[in-house]
Amino acid sequence: MANRFFVAPAPHLHGEMSTVRLMADVIIALLPALVISVKVFGWDVLAVTAVSVVSCVALEAFVQHFIVRGKSTVGNLSAALTGLLLAMNLPSNIPLWIVVVGAVFAICVAKMPFGGLGKNPFNPALAARVFLLIAYPQQMTSFVAPSVEGAADAASGATPLAALKAGMLSACDADYGAMFTGATAGSLGEVSALALLLGFAYLLMRRVISWHIPVSILATMAIFATIYAGVRFEDSMMHLYLPAFHLLSGGAMLGAIYMATDYVTSPMTKKGMLIYGVGIGVLTMCIRLWGAYPEGMSFAILIMNSVTPLLNKYVKPRRFGSR
């Protein structure tokens, strides 16, 4: 009997959830943003994305085969997702060799030395983005103007956030329709809030992520911006516009929905997730309003990534029956 039957302790069933499926779901959720991006910036987008994905996958296969000497981990799609997320964080006109440098940093510095998937302390795609931003600031911050009609304010190719920082744009005059649908300058993935929200809805529906991290980040940013506008500006229109501007501009949506929710580098408990989200929101707004960079999302997420182990240690779920 023992030979013909598989005998194991309970539970005898397993759900349909799998690592590959989760990774594939996130990739699917990013597709609307990619489509919008191709529409806005042209075919360069696909070149950047393809180079990023292919080099990430190839590098992971290389490291796993020749250095770790373990079973191939390319099949779990995590390297492909890292590549896609990295591409989402780059301008469309970036030289392709810089994309490869970013992929090398993501896989060979931020991910594999720590033990690969599940053990990296920092989000590899974001670590690579910040590395590129510091190493190649000029290439990383020159954007092409979108090619969609009706994008009058973006002719210079400056992102709305950079324009606001430089004083070229007031939050009251920004073209919110363009910022929502994606007709502004910026990184591949960050231009269209609409596409990102579509992906968010898909991720929530598939229960890949919970609402805690994105909502706490965006709510914190909105509240912070409202208080700042209330203290700083007399104009009551500004009190409404500034929060909306900060939510729709830059990497706020991309960061909150796709980067901060990265399983490996975010806290395990719901309470921890809320603290983490609030932390990211506050840090992002501090960097945006008073920092040297117009965009603070990536730095804020990396800083909170480093707090995650601490949150996992001290923020425990409520045990059933305890107070």
Partner: peptide, 18 residues
């Protein structure tokens, strides 16, 4: 395969364990 720290087990646990 490797734990990806997705926290689905923490969410599923009816006793609030990790």
């Amino acid at each position: 395969s490797a734990c990806i720290k997705c926290a689905k087990c923490v969410e599923a646990c009816p006793m609030g364990l990790e």
